[in-house]
């Protein structure tokens, strides 16, 4: 192959890698934002939702031998239930909810969930088969695994589902109303408590989806939560906290920049790239790339 052609296929290869990494950051980042919008806090147990999603999927497909679509559905429901229980038992009963108190509660829940995952699934790492085989697909000299297509495709479905839900359903609109102004929403007759519960449910569901689609590639163990949560949190911050589409864009930016850095500079600096972007954005635009500076000023956190 001539120099130009091979250069292009390399670039494409790096791009695929970046899109795959970015999709995962984006999904985790979206999860943070949903809860942030309804409660104003960062849910530190978000990474644990991802872990539970991955581990439950492994159990259902590899041990219980369920088909992938059925296991997918059951896993999402299971983790959504965990999210709901978390809200009902740890967030709702708090008498004077302030940001610091709630954040500390989510940290406690994350430790608890991590311990539970260790007890149920043990300390080893678990793997599962790729959804549809692992034979690579060739595109202009670059290759990608079918699982990468699944990851990017499922992210797209989730994003489209979100747009429809938040813009075209009553519940979605109510949730947005609560995010914009909780008191006003309550005066308009929206039960804001239920919206908080719903946001935990949605956020847990998205976390579970992220866990399910990456487990065939990275395997899953009970300690993964913090690591997975970190980059997703970075994406949420860079995209502008509370802005789910910002998180998707920022997650993709992180993923692609990291892959390009690994390809063209050196893989030793790959992780530094994400941190560099995070720092630059925090210095220049503390409200994030897509966040509104005015809205950020009104926030408690």
């Amino acid at each position: 192959m001539d120099q130009v052609g091979s250069g292009f296929s390399d670039f494409l290869q790096f791009l695929f890698m970046g899109l795959q990494r970015g999709s995962i950051y984006a999904l985790v980042g979206m999860g943070y934002n949903i809860i942030y919008n309804s409660t104003g806090v960062i849910n530190f147990a978000q990474g644990e939702f991802v872990v539970f999603g991955g581990l439950m999927m492994v159990t259902l497909t590899m041990t219980a031998n369920l088909s992938i679509p059925l296991a997918f559905l059951l896993t999402v429901l299971f983790v959504t239930l965990i999210g709901v229980l978390m809200e009902r038992f740890t967030i709702k009963p708090v008498k004077n909810p302030n940001v610091l108190r709630l954040i500390i509660i989510t940290i406690a829940v994350s430790i608890l969930l991590k311990g539970m995952a260790m007890c149920f699934w043990g300390k080893g790492s678990h793997y599962m088969r790729h959804f549809t085989g692992s034979d690579p697909i060739e595109v202009f000299g670059a290759t990608l695994l079918p699982q990468t297509l699944w990851i990017i495709g499922i992210l797209a479905v989730v994003v489209i589902g979100f747009v429809l839900f938040f813009n075209h359903t009553m519940i979605g609109k109510s949730m947005r109303a609560c995010a914009i102004n909780r008191d006003a929403a309550r005066l308009a007759g929206i039960n804001d408590r239920n919206m908080v519960m719903l946001s935990f449910a949605l956020s847990a569901g998205i976390g579970a989806i992220a866990g399910i689609i990456i487990t065939p590639i990275i395997q899953m163990d009970y300690t993964r939560g913090a690591l997975l949560g970190l980059k997703g949190f970075g994406a949420a911050v860079v995209g502008g906290l509370g802005n789910s589409f910002g998180a998707v864009a920022a997650g993709m930016l992180f993923g692609i920049m990291e892959a390009m850095a690994a390809g063209y500079i050196s893989s030793h600096y790959m992780d530094a790239v994400a941190l560099l972007i995070l720092l630059i954005v925090l210095f220049i635009r503390p409200s994030g790339l897509f966040g509104s500076a005015d809205a950020a000023r009104l926030r408690e956190f």
Partner: peptide
């Protein structure tokens, strides 16, 4: 001489460089 982090999901960029 390439590296990857424990949470990485794809090492194709590093492997392309090793190949080249």
């Amino acid at each position: 001489d390439e590296t990857y982090a424990p949470g990485d999901t794809d090492m194709t960029a590093q492997l392309v460089n090793i190949k080249n």
